[in-house]
Amino acid sequence: MNSFKFIVDSFFISHIKTPLAVVSAVVVLIIVTVSVMAAKEIKKNKAEKSDNAGEENV
């Protein structure tokens, strides 16, 4: 018994390919940008924490 079904049909492929490509490109671009922002934020937090730890030791 086949318990797995592909929904994408020929109608979709022929009519909605371009908008899907545009939306996918935007999505990938935003995910990459957000990830870079988060990485920078984490790096900044880490630097702040080590600075605070340094001040406490002094």
Binding site: M1, N2, S3, F4, K5, F6, I7, V8
Partner: peptide, 11 residues
């Protein structure tokens, strides 16, 4: 979900 799905409750 937009591309494929399981069709049986067991799966």
């Amino acid at each position: 979900i937009f591309f494929f799905k399981f069709t049986t409750a067991f799966a």
